[in-house]
Design a protein around this nucleic acid. Structure first.
Length: 130
DNA sequence: GAAATGACGTAAG
DNA sequence: ACTTACGCCATTT
């Protein structure tokens, strides 16, 4: 497929995030924007972000969007985003499988067995903070 | 265009 | 706590 019929407002910017040039950059933009608001030492979940944006059930898309976080500018602290139970499900997508854990530990978030320790305590809710 | 894939989520066994 | 199953939606093949 890959038809160019889809509306591409900012091909350039979008290209930086999504090489194939696809869906509204809007979605990615919002995901990144929220992710950048996550305070140091705190984490949030894909579902929470999805809900905050409004897509709600598209938590998967948030994760997919994070896939492009490495190319996004400014960079997005994707390491502060975990799944609903606090597992570092995306650590394999980083340059090194241990990078995510390292970054979190550096910020004061302890990780044990690929899980965030005291997840409920360090959880940051975009709905409440924004 | 149908089928498969995925950094998810929730429910159920 | 772990596994299975289903729903969700954009991307990819």
């Amino acid at each position: 497929m890959n038809d160019n019929k889809k509306r591409l407002k900012n091909p350039d910017k979008l290209k930086a995030i999504n090489p194939s040039g696809a869906t509204d950059q809007n979605f990615f933009d919002q995901v990144f924007e929220i992710t950048r608001q996550i305070p140091k030492g705190r984490v949030t979940s894909y579902g929470a972000i999805a809900k905050c944006i409004g897509t709600g059930k598209s938590a998967r898309l948030v994760g997919w969007a994070m896939n492009g976080s490495g190319k996004a500018k400014p960079k997005v602290p994707a390491h502060r985003v975990v799944n609903s139970i606090g597992v570092l499900s995306g650590k394999l997508a980083f340059k090194t499988p241990t990078l995510m854990e390292e970054l979190l530990a550096k910020e004061g978030v302890k990780v044990k067995n690929d899980k965030v320790v005291d997840f409920k305590k360090v959880f940051w809710n975009p709905m409440e903070e924004l």
